[in-house]
Write a protein that binds this DNA or RNA. Structure first.
Lengths: 251, 251
DNA sequence: CGGACAGTTGATCCCGTTCAAGAAACGTGG
DNA sequence: CCACGTTTCTTGAACGGGATCAACTGTCCG
């Protein structure tokens, strides 16, 4: 009972930050059927080519999405943090076009795709919030295209670290530009389109230049403005400001 | 013949191919207020940082979305063809995170954001179709991240050419792997994260190897299977299976 | 006919890769 | 608690794909 409410509250808060919902929307959302599930690091949450049957809310832990080319090279296309809904595409697309894998041990709340479809048909404001969530996802993908396509290795890695800082902070999981990033350098390489060796060298120089501090996988940013400048980072694309306005909801 | 109904029929057909609509949905969609507009090549359709007030359906012509880094490098993040709805994010996001620019002369049908919001709240199935459209957009972005991050220049360009072939064919704008691609080599470079010079060299070798045929900006693919293999192309990510045949058959 | 822009080609350079090997850190099980 | 295999990180040396710089050749169009 309490755990039920608690778990989906995370999703409710996320969606409400994207678009205003009324009491009926909230109740319907919290009444969604779901199954909690704990997966180990590196476990697959979804596989390319499979027919998805559910969408997952990350309650705790980190996950990432990736694709593998025919030559066997892996590219990570996004990293997800607690509160994110991964595989929302599972609700509407008939076949998964990428893999979702756990980065750390994750607690997930899995919701059957039919339940989501019914919810958005009966409560269009919830659908609107989910759509908005997908739009923001898309915005982040676009920035990743720019990051990988047009920034050199140093800016590229700095940009990734800036993005995590702001997203984790917005989710209440980081403060004062210090956070845990549970990714190996190989995974960072796969996220930035570089090699692990080069990622290592760049991290070294960033540390040496006082732009970041590293203790194991804790990242600290002593001078945000300096790192931001190196990265060419501007957080507009994260749409964190998404103030609920305009879409009138009667509470 | 640019009657009201005719123009929006293109959008109706697009959305109907993504999710089933009923008669009421159709009528409401066709009753959307819109303004047709013709823009010249290179004209801006939307600008980063602006507050979007409308979304645009491309009736004829090509357009692309891009971002510019602080160092001035440009990255094209997507290319759009007739029937595509660009800037659907304009309906929900409060600030545009990228530019949209015309590639050729374009006829657009511009719909005010408020009208779209009202439509999806009153007709959730339409909202669902638009959401699905956004999800497929996202899938294409992911593939671009992989393309730019993990494929070498030759595969990268081959992949882009394969993608255009399939998308244009699905829209009824290409047949037998022959189509017009109204992009300069500089724009191809900006789309693939390469330099114009290198794009030129790669196109040369692709021609020399009989993988493509070029006459001005007409691209022909004499041996689809061969180019597909060079590109490592698999069309799952385009989710064309959700699209019935002949979507753009404006007979 | 001339000016502008797109495409082509050559020469050279450099950022990031590749290959290789050692050093930490991290579990395990004894 | 330590011994030990495994993964991750680190560093060096050499290579190469694509960038850069620069010049030339169409081709379109007024």
């Amino acid at each position: 009972m309490t755990s039920r409410g608690h778990t989906l509250n995370l999703m409710l808060r996320k969606l409400e930050s994207r678009a205003p919902l009324d009491a009926g929307d909230r109740d319907a959302l919290l009444a969604l059927p779901f199954r909690t599930q704990t997966v180990e690091p590196a476990a697959y949450i979804a596989r390319e080519g499979e027919r998805p049957e559910r969408s997952c809310l990350i309650v705790t832990g980190f996950a990432y999405r990736h694709k593998v080319t025919v030559e066997g090279a892996r590219q990570i296309v996004s990293v997800h943090i607690p509160g994110d809904i991964v595989d929302l595409e599972g609700a509407l697309l008939s076949v998964a076009d990428h893999n979702v894998q756990a980065l750390t041990r994750c607690e997930l709340a899995c919701i059957p795709r039919e339940a989501i479809r019914e919810l958005i048909l009966s409560h269009p404001r919830v659908g609107m919030a989910m759509w908005l969530d997908t739009l923001i996802d898309g915005s982040i993908f676009r920035e990743w295209v720019v990051n990988i396509g047009r920034r050199d290795a140093r800016s590229r890695i700095a940009h990734l670290l800036c993005e995590f800082a702001r997203r984790l902070e917005a989710a209440g999981l980081a403060a004062q530009y210090r956070y845990e990033l549970p990714m190996t350098q190989e995974q960072l390489a796969d996220a930035t389109g570089l090699t692990p060796v080069h990622v290592n060298r760049i991290l070294m120089t960033l540390s040496r230049d006082g732009l970041i501090e590293r203790k194991r996988r804790i990242v600290g940013i002593p001078d945000w403005e300096a790192l931001r400048r190196v990265a060419g980072f501007s957080e507009t694309y994260l749409h964190l400001d998404q103030v609920p306005r305009g879409v009138a909801a009667t509470a």
